[in-house]
Amino acid sequence: MAYNWNVSEPKNDQKPKFEIQPEIYSIIELNGENRTYTCDFRPNKVEKYFEAKIDRNSIDSLVKGVDLLSKEYKSVIHYDSNIGCIKPLPILKIKVNYSDNTSKSYYYNFTENEKKYSSIRNLYRSLKIIEIGETYHKIDINSNLENKKIEFIKKSMKEDTTAFPKPRKLVFEVEG
Results as ranks from 00 to 15, higher is better:
residue 81 S to A: 14
residue 82 N to S: 12
residue 17 K to N: 09
residue 104 K to A: 14
residue 87 K to P: 06
residue 109 N to T: 12
residue 96 V to S: 15
residue 63 V to D: 06
residue 145 L to C: 03
residue 50 F to H: 05
residue 137 H to K: 15
residue 63 V to H: 04
residue 28 I to M: 07
residue 123 L to T: 04
residue 55 D to P: 03
residue 141 I to R: 09
residue 93 K to G: 14
residue 154 K to G: 15
residue 170 L to S: 09
residue 60 D to Y: 06
residue 52 A to F: 04
residue 92 L to F: 10
residue 123 L to D: 00
residue 58 S to K: 11
residue 46 V to D: 11
residue 51 E to S: 13
residue 101 N to R: 07
residue 49 Y to P: 05
residue 170 L to A: 11
residue 53 K to S: 09
residue 143 S to Q: 15
residue 34 N to E: 11
residue 120 I to V: 06
residue 147 N to W: 01
residue 46 V to P: 08
residue 79 Y to V: 04
residue 43 P to A: 07
residue 31 N to M: 02
residue 125 R to T: 15
residue 6 N to L: 12
residue 90 P to Y: 02
residue 142 N to D: 14
residue 139 I to K: 00
residue 152 F to Y: 03
residue 88 P to T: 01
residue 96 V to I: 11
residue 11 K to S: 11
residue 18 F to G: 08
residue 138 K to S: 08
residue 145 L to R: 00
residue 109 N to A: 13
residue 138 K to M: 09
residue 4 N to S: 11
residue 92 L to A: 04
residue 145 L to F: 02
residue 62 L to E: 04
residue 14 Q to G: 12
residue 116 K to R: 06
residue 57 N to G: 12
residue 39 C to F: 02
residue 112 E to W: 10
residue 51 E to N: 14
residue 166 K to W: 02
residue 46 V to R: 10
residue 79 Y to Q: 11
residue 126 S to G: 08
residue 1 M to G: 03
residue 26 S to Y: 01
residue 150 I to C: 12
residue 22 P to M: 06
residue 28 I to K: 03
residue 36 T to H: 00
residue 137 H to M: 13
residue 112 E to A: 14
residue 111 T to E: 14
residue 32 G to F: 05
residue 19 E to D: 10
residue 70 S to N: 15
residue 113 N to L: 07
residue 50 F to N: 06
residue 130 I to R: 03
residue 74 K to A: 15
residue 93 K to D: 14
residue 174 V to N: 05
residue 102 T to K: 14
residue 68 L to V: 13
residue 130 I to M: 03
residue 16 P to D: 04
residue 103 S to G: 05
residue 108 Y to S: 07
residue 65 G to K: 00
residue 33 E to D: 15
residue 27 I to M: 09
residue 11 K to F: 10
residue 152 F to H: 00
residue 154 K to L: 12
residue 19 E to G: 10
residue 2 A to I: 13
residue 77 I to F: 06
residue 143 S to R: 12
residue 128 K to G: 07
residue 17 K to L: 11
residue 162 T to P: 08
residue 28 I to W: 09
residue 49 Y to R: 01
residue 98 Y to P: 09
residue 50 F to E: 07
residue 67 D to C: 09
residue 10 P to Y: 01
residue 88 P to L: 03
residue 63 V to C: 00
residue 47 E to R: 03
residue 145 L to G: 04
residue 121 R to M: 09
residue 166 K to Q: 13
residue 146 E to L: 13
residue 161 T to R: 11
residue 93 K to C: 14
